[in-house]
Design a protein around this nucleic acid. Structure first.
Lengths: 332, 332
DNA sequence: AATAATAAAGAAAACGTTTTCCACATTGTA
DNA sequence: TACAATGTGGAAAACGTTTTCTTTATTATT
């Protein structure tokens, strides 16, 4: 294996000089720089990131912490995009990255979790899917030695950034669009199937919906669907008859609701949230909020790197699209 | 951070002794062993895997090489299970693991790929989704310094193992079951939509189907559907009228075929292959071959570890199930 | 009891980097 | 011209392990 030593010898400089060139340290002459870079190229040298991580005081190693407890295959698409988007960006930025699943940490105490990440030389963590009850994760966020980026939760301070879309606004807009499209069908009675209790996004979406109900003077019934297709089916069965429109806090619930309506042989407009491709198979077209999960994850990784480089935590709000998902859009 | 040095001091032994205890070296007295283990527990010590990887001549670091070029969200479920199954097993076995996506390696030469894996101290690689044209990957497999486990391809030798199900047999059985269930509907004319040309699994499935056609004396039309839902739709439109049954080499094609049939308002039995949950949303029930992707991946990781420990490569064939996927089975 | 054989534990080099500190070279300033 | 200030490059320690080699302790053999 060609090491930094070989490059140094080949370029006729010291090891430290090579390292400084590679890491863009100041106070290196252009002449030396090019000499080193040439040697790097000629020897096809790639720095050993393991050694770098060991040596560096602030190793740029990042973990993607996938916190899914319940297994619905439909959301695999979301997490797959999170993972691939995050890993790809990390590669571009020359960061080491590991993926950690919930099952690997579920019974660990904060000290064990701490030791685990230390043992991996991990200092940056991106957390996907945190809920208010995840005590250990919240403790983790407060450990000073870690820089954390939280997806889909309003948690940001010196060491922590958050990345998400404006769920409040998105829920407001997608529901408003759906309702206005169906005006004339007496669409002022709405059934809202909300997400998980104590979920950060669930609450943001719910308040968005509540604001819309107030603004449009809607008669709204809110029921907790827990992001579950089955729950959504049951609630739809119970309440659909008396409601004109069904707004769901997730696509999966929307699919369940729509399917149930079809089985009941009645029509109600339904809208969802997330923009997963399964919507294309739901039978009827529905409005939904399309999130770019790969981009969200990529931005989160970039932000983690910024924090590791001394940046201050902040709240990053990315944009979304309101779309009507068709079968034709998703097949290939 | 608590290091091996701290453990050694706490236990009153040398660093090397601690290391030997931790790595199950022989010639350590039980008394010393327990003394060390106690110190480990008391200090909440977790070995730094980065340092271990750097120091060790044969680092047990494994890469999951996800080789998806085409983006169909439906297969996200498969890859998500591959990834989570592999990573979870790696954690159990105390192996370091990284996930590498196709996009990160697509334009790299074999030397660059080699340098890349070396730079990560990776010596074990699990490859998902290799096809015959992937020259670089085949070169990679032949590098002596890497131990490779290939999923879904008949590649095994001293340094390489393969893990897959018996695709030939599975295709034979699922198609046979479907045909026999529909006997009496003159089901001796079969349309077979095969997978990608030059795909290892595609060929195994095709030969399985050919054998069945011969055994049952079926009139069979084979068309290449390329694992594409769209292609399957077009082929179904063209040929369904004259065929009694449609056998597809993947679920996605089966879904496309079934959907097209429904649109054409004709009924034909269709069967698929893989057992993805999307089948539950296809409208009609279909037979399919259910693969346990998480288990396949976990076994592959275990096998990679075995190879790294000096084991000989081999061909591992796991079992599958023939199932009829219903909506009720997949929602929650 | 003396020696050989083996078991057990320690010392130290090595892995490939980063980073601190130091020395020398160059430039600017008086 | 002398001195300070700065620019540039090198030497060496450090990161936390593994592993080889050596030393010491123990057991077996005569």
């Amino acid at each position: 294996m060609v090491s930094i030593k070989d490059v140094a010898k080949h370029a006729g400089v010291a090891i430290s000089t090579v390292s400084k060139v590679l890491n863009n340290y100041p106070n290196i002459r252009l002449e030396t720089r090019t000499k080193v870079n040439q040697a790097v190229k000629e020897l096809n040298y790639v720095p050993n990131s393991v050694a770098a991580a060991l040596s560096s005081k602030q190793p740029c190693r990042i973990a993607l912490l996938i916190n899914i407890k319940y297994k619905t295959q439909a959301i695999d698409e979301i997490y797959m995009q999170y993972i691939s988007g995050g890993i790809s960006r990390a590669t571009e930025l020359n960061l080491d990255i590991i993926t950690v699943f919930f099952s690997m940490i579920e019974n660990k105490s904060i000290d064990e979790l701490d030791a685990y990440f230390m043992s991996q030389s991990i200092t940056g963590i991106v957390i996907y899917g945190i809920s208010k009850e995840d005590n250990t994760l919240h403790q983790l966020i407060n450990r000073e030695r870690f820089k954390v980026v939280v997806i889909d939760a309003p948690i940001f301070n010196t060491n922590t950034s958050s990345v998400w879309i404006d769920n409040h606004k998105a829920q407001y807009e997608v529901a408003k669009k759906t309702i206005l499209e169906n005006i004339g069908h007496a669409s002022d009675r709405v059934l809202y199937l909300s997400g998980k209790k104590n979920g950060y996004v669930s609450e943001a979406r719910l308040t968005g919906m509540e604001k819309l109900a107030a603004d449009l003077n809607l008669e709204m019934l809110v029921r907790c669907g827990e992001f579950s297709e089955l729950k959504a089916r049951n609630l739809t069965m119970r309440f659909a008859k008396n409601k004109d429109i069904i707004v769901c806090a997730s696509d999966l619930m929307a699919i369940g609701a729509m399917r149930t309506l079809t089985e009941m042989n009645i029509f109600r407009p339904v809208c969802g949230f997330d923009g997963i491709s399964l919507m294309g198979y739901a039978g009827k077209q529905m409005n939904t909020v399309k999130q770019d999960f790969a981009r969200i994850s990529a931005e989160a990784v970039t932000e983690a790197a910024r924090l590791l480089n001394g940046g201050e935590g902040r709240n990053i709000v990315l944009d979304f699209q309101i779309v009507r998902l068709k079968y034709e859009d998703i097949i290939c």
